[in-house]
Amino acid sequence: MTTTAPSSLEETESPYALSHLDALESEGVHIFREVAGEFERPVILFSGGKDSIVMLHLALKAFAPAAVPFTLLHVDTGHNFPEVIEYRDRVVAEHGLRLHVASVQEYIDAGKLRERPDGTRNPLQTVPLTEAIQQHRFDAVFGGGRRDEEKARAKERVFSLRDEFSQWDPRRQRPELWQLYNGRHAPGEHVRVFPLSNWTELDVWQYISREEIELPEIYFAHEREVFQRSGMWLTAGEWGGPRADETVVKRQVRYRTVGDMSCTGAVDSDATSLQAVITEIAASRLTERGATRADDKMSEAAMEDRKREGYF
């Protein structure tokens, strides 16, 4: 009896094999269901940015047709893009979700935090975040961090243990072989959970395109008044920009990531559609945070320092 070798690579592949995006989606859905089975009070961080939007989409899929069994939490700096806040509130209302907002402005008004000289509020998010976790006794907190974003985030496990002060110690992180996640934690501790750990920025955009997920309009090219600082195009606002020596110009730009207006830069772009954005990202050699986030440029270890203090 003779056998014939397959004539092509395609013939060797199983017709039941998952595509790359299907595998990532399956992993994310599994993580959400695992947390629902292990923890009592999980919460999803939701800012209205693309990663948290995809994360919420996975949660909706994980529990459909039932409702998502978690609340949402947003740490609002007070300097967020209005388009993103409008999107956040609309999505929450559409899906009948409950949203907790931890306001940096309220902490400043109460004297618990002080404005930074540069006007940036992203580093001020840690205290409202950790206190909200303690106040509501959240024991699992979903975040949209990805390992390709920044070298400190590349050290994270999917289940990231935090101590009673919400601090991160990379030496205490546990191995996660064969997608087995250890959610054990002592009273007062909690676990940060990252369902998008193995996704890249390109994966996120391709998934958004496949699933036809709506995004805030600032992710696509549009005309905007901006000024240049530290090599980035920033949006003018009440946070303190522009200075007297900084000229406001109108340019066609879009945002690769959204955060505090004072430290999130736009990029020149003519990508007005999902496919155009995907083509642009595929050709880029800079990560979104490296290209557009001033708060990550404060030092080589800026993100890791903030993570140790309790930030994501």
Rank of each mutant, 00 (worst) to 15 (best):
S8D: 12
L72P: 03
L113T: 06
A67M: 08
T279C: 02
L202H: 03
R243K: 13
E13M: 11
F165N: 14
V91C: 02
N182P: 03
D260G: 05
K250G: 05
T77S: 15
T77G: 07
V75A: 14
A102L: 07
V43P: 00
D270F: 01
Q167G: 14
V191F: 12
L9W: 09
Q179N: 14
F312Q: 09
D245M: 01
L274E: 05
K50N: 06
Y207S: 01
E10V: 09
W199P: 00
E223V: 03
M261L: 15
A244T: 01
L234A: 06
H79W: 12
L72C: 08
R121S: 02
E225T: 10
A276H: 02
V226L: 12
V101G: 07
S284M: 12
V92M: 07
V191M: 12
E304G: 10
G237Y: 11
D295N: 11
T272R: 14
S19P: 01
M261F: 04
R251L: 15
S26W: 00
F70A: 10
G28H: 01
E27S: 06
V91R: 08
S26I: 00
S103Q: 10
S230V: 01
R192H: 09
Y207D: 02
H136Q: 13
V193C: 08
G37Q: 13
T12V: 15
E10L: 13
G241K: 07
V101E: 13
I31L: 09
R285M: 08
A23E: 06
G28V: 00
E25D: 03
E11H: 11
P65Q: 02
P123K: 04
A294Y: 07
Y311G: 10
P6F: 03
L215S: 10
F227I: 00
S197Q: 12
L196A: 05
R224Q: 15
S103W: 05
E13R: 12
R147Y: 04
T247H: 01
G188E: 12
N182C: 09
E238G: 10
P6A: 12
V277A: 01
P123W: 03
P69K: 04
G145V: 12
S103C: 07
A17N: 09
G144A: 09
P65I: 02
P42K: 13
A301D: 15
F138G: 05
V84M: 12
E25V: 02
A102E: 10
L58H: 00
L202C: 02
A301Y: 11
L18W: 04
E156D: 06
P117W: 06
P82L: 03
S8L: 06
A282Q: 10
G183C: 08
P6Y: 01
L18A: 15
W233Y: 14
S230K: 14
V204K: 09
S19T: 15
E246D: 03
V258M: 15
T247N: 01
L21Q: 06
K297P: 01
D51Y: 05
G241R: 09
R306F: 11
P69H: 00
F194T: 10
